[in-house]
Design a protein around this nucleic acid. Structure first.
Lengths: 211, 211
DNA sequence: TTGATAAACGGAACCGTGTTCCGTATCGTC
DNA sequence: GACGATACGGAACACGGTTCCGTTTATCAA
């Protein structure tokens, strides 16, 4: 995943920095080996701890599992949201990429929407507490919120538009509201067997259908 | 601990609400005047603070606003959930009572269900953070969760059953799941103007409709 | 190889919150 | 007025997030 920090993953490790050809303005940081190793260890530890204790496990637990100090975790991931994003980034990206694919595969845009929402729900309900923390307006989680939204809302919007253009659904629901709603419906789904979030999401999508 | 007045702890199962008005229980604790005054002050203060800072405002803020110490607030309301319940009890009860009334007033059971859900949503979205805390599985909030559920799920179940018996809706959604879902959809509704929880709830209910 | 230097590290310390505990103040009664 | 029960206030503790800084270590130039 992103070892190159931030936007530009470029310039890798090997040293050809003499000429800086191609000019990446934010000069590659050339990070130390131990820093990279620790970041990797933290990602692994966080993923493991998230599974067992949920995404809001104590920071100290993650640091301990990774065998690093607290300073180190905060240096690599200034907020917990950054850590969560880093852990789940590829899954979110995969979900985003599945949207256009489904649109060409599925029988109709509505079917594509249904299946795509299904993917999103599957992702959320298997991550202890992720849905809850996604909606939390606690300071520091705007980043997480924003990342999910940036990645997924455009995809959802495209699916909605396609289905609306085909006359399959009501045209006036914005993707943002839908994504938040689906996310909200998933809160607590993993910890309460009596609560059937998938069913509700299905009903919600069914409610979209043009009658 | 709890006298006949604003009974707090426990999800008191005896639902007969009109009964406790006249029939004083034999063993009236005979609480001190200052205790009653402080409890009242705390309820007022809590209601005020909840409006401005949300239902998860710091306990100290509420105590300060009421002009009492921390010990006092914990003596009267062992958990925050007890305090929240005490503050909103009347509104929750009113909502519960509205169910049967709507069933007789409204044109059809489905219309009654729609309007009753509307009442519930109105209640939730006007209480900063209440929906969120309702779903929170943080220790100590089971009481709150349980109180809402005990009061509202039976009412909701009756409405669902009536609508299903009339053939208006699909018959196989349990009231618990629906209540949780609606509650979930309301999370964050009051703090994000771009998120239209009412719309989603309406879609959800629409999705219930037998096609 | 070695020394200098910046990068990175670890964890103690700090802060805000919930919760408990206990010495003190107050109420209600005799 | 005295006395016991009741209630009070807030210091102290627990816990988790976050910051800060003295120490360690990787890297590079000499």
């Amino acid at each position: 995943m992103n070892d190159g920090e931030g936007a530009t993953a470029g310039a890798g490790k090997n040293s050809g920095r003499a000429a800086d050809a191609g000019g990446a303005p934010p000069a590659a940081p050339a990070r130390r080996k131990d820093a990279r190793r620790n970041k990797e260890a933290l990602l692994d530890a966080a993923a493991a701890v998230f599974v067992t204790s949920g995404v809001d496990a104590p920071v100290r637990d993650i640091a301990a599992r990774a065998g690093v100090g607290l300073g180190t975790i905060y240096r690599h991931f200034p907020t917990r949201a950054d850590l969560i994003i880093a852990v789940y980034r590829h899954q979110v990206d995969a979900c985003a990429e599945a949207g256009p694919a489904l649109l060409t595969e599925a029988a109709t845009p509505y079917a594509a929407l249904e299946r795509w929402i299904g993917l999103f729900v599957d992702f959320l309900v298997t991550k202890h507490g992720l849905a809850a923390v996604l909606q939390s307006d606690t300071a520091g989680f705007e980043t997480l919120h924003a990342y999910f939204l940036d990645q997924l809302v455009p995809v959802c919007a495209a699916l909605l538009r396609a289905a609306a253009d085909g006359g399959e659904i009501l045209p006036d629901l914005d993707a943002y509201t839908l994504m938040r709603g689906v996310g909200n419906l998933c809160v607590g789904a993993e910890s309460d067997p009596a609560y059937d979030a998938r069913r509700l999401v299905a009903l919600l999508i069914a409610g979209l259908r043009r009658t």
